[in-house]
Amino acid sequence: MSASPVARQAVAQAVPQNIPRRVTINSPAELPNDYSTTPGGTLFSTTPGGTRIIYERTFLMQMRNSPLAKTPPKNLPVIPGVTAKDTEVVHRENGTIVEEPEKPEATDVDNQFEMDL
């Protein structure tokens, strides 16, 4: 099972917590569906010292194809070659991996704008 969002205690990790009760797990079916809940009911909605919303990589990657991520943001500015098609740039369809032939490095026009910072 992959990681769901985990609100982890960010500070004072060394401080031992008083856990009010223990829940014995006898089979995987008793595990919660979501890491943000705990078996037998969620104990804390906040943690002492404040919480930080942490997401693990696996979960973030899963969300890439969420239906909610399929629509471009509203009011996205039109920037050729970035948010809009550029004549020189072939857009890749989201999710498909198309090996494009490597373009020749740098046309002269590009070079004249180059700035190394």
Binding site: S66, A69, K70, P72, P73, L76, G81, D86
Partner: peptide, 17 residues
Amino acid sequence: ASFNTVEDFWALYNHIE
């Protein structure tokens, strides 16, 4: 653009070069 959710991050990332 600015975003503050996982889904809005991907909505942006999926639609830019």
